[in-house]
């Protein structure tokens, strides 16, 4: 619109006030985390024990890795709701392809990682080239993958993993569970990509303003596709760890994880509109959810309440987030 005058940008008045708001947005979730941690410690004497903390962390790993992948996609302005079934697919495939044979480790892992990347490419392709809303595309992919997984097992869960592989999920190095080490590894890699590579900067730019990014010479289709690929790969890694932990090819293991991964990202503080947030805040989101579940467990609350809590937490998280955004 060629109006004169154009709405003039906010004149830098209260810089301090704005800085505070920004800070809160970035790290508010850590404040919540700390409070929650304190509350949990007070409410349950068992909470602060070594066994409990590490068990909790071990269980948080799959969700955590998933949420990290989801962060990439949401940062670029999209969403991936097919991750849960990709996890399930990974679990059933690895538990049956392994065949009690450790020399299979590399071929199996590479194949399934390839599949994860392929899923990501497909999601990314249809979202960018055909402009299909990511919600719809990934929901379709979700159904597809779930079905493929079921066909693969024909309803009969397999269990062909070796103790070596299972160590991935059950073992520890010193006192730290191996899954947690993997999680830390994925987290660090993600952090590096987002903050120290060009791809990371492009992801934030494309999420923040796709058109301006395009006009700056960025290939937004490629960047978007990469986020879905990364998300797919993370889902596969999470699947490996989960498979190692449960040992059996359960087709429905990833079912609730779609929503959970989105919840963790949003609660942490990454915005749906893209361009703001990151894996550091997602980590807080994952921990918040984990502590909540753990607390409910310790207090003997029925498992099903977790669903309720999850839903309420997402709602609150999203509202608080959006309010924080609309200055």
């Amino acid at each position: 619109m060629h109006n004169f005058p154009i709405k003039l940008a906010g004149i830098t008045g209260n810089n301090n006030n704005n800085q505070f708001k920004l800070f809160f947005q970035k790290y508010g979730s850590y404040a919540t985390l700390l409070i929650l941690f304190g509350v949990a410690s007070i409410l349950s004497p068992v909470f602060l024990t070594e066994t409990n903390i590490f068990t909790m962390l071990r269980q948080a790993t799959a969700l955590g890795i998933l949420a990290i992948g989801q962060t990439f996609v949401i940062l670029a302005g999209g969403i991936d709701l097919s991750v849960g079934s990709l996890v399930s697919l990974t679990v059933v495939m690895v538990t049956s392809m392994y065949q009690f044979n450790d020399s299979q480790l590399i071929p199996v892992v590479t194949t399934i990682l390839g599949i994860g990347a392929l899923v990501g490419v497909t999601n990314g392709f249809f979202v960018t080239k055909f402009r299909i809303p990511p919600l719809v595309m990934t929901l379709g992919m979700l159904t597809l993958l779930q079905g493929l997984g079921l066909i693969y097992t024909k309803g009969v869960p397999q269990n062909t993993l070796t103790p070596l592989f299972r160590n991935l999920g059950l073992g520890k190095i010193w006192i730290v569970p191996i899954p947690v080490i993997f999680f830390a590894g994925v987290f660090v890699v993600a952090l590096i990509i987002l903050n120290y590579t060009n791809l990371g900067k492009y992801i934030y730019a494309v999420g923040g303003n796709p058109e301006a990014s395009r006009l700056s010479g960025i290939n937004i289709q490629f960047v978007t596709m990469m986020t879905y690929v990364i998300c797919g790969i993370c889902a596969v890694i999470a699947g490996f760890i989960l498979a190692a932990r449960i040992g059996v090819g359960d087709n429905w293991v990833g079912e609730g994880m779609n929503l959970e991964s989105v919840a963790a990202v949003v609660i942490g503080g990454t915005s749906f509109s893209g361009g703001r947030g990151g894996v550091i805040t997602t980590l807080a989101g994952v921990l918040i959810l984990s502590i909540l579940y753990n607390l409910l467990l310790l207090e003997g609350v029925v498992y099903f309440w977790q669903e309720v809590v999850k839903g309420i937490v997402i709602l609150i998280g999203v509202i608080v987030y959006i309010r924080g955004k609309n200055r």
Binding site: K201, Y204, A205, G208, N209, E211, A212, S213, L215, G275
Partner: peptide, 22 residues
């Protein structure tokens, strides 16, 4: 400039180097 020239939520530095990162 707001819609097409800048990514508003990014810092000055990140906006400035956006085209030359490569």
């Amino acid at each position: 400039r707001r819609q097409h020239g800048l990514v508003l939520c990014l810092s000055i530095r990140n906006n400035i180097v956006l085209s030359i990162l490569n």
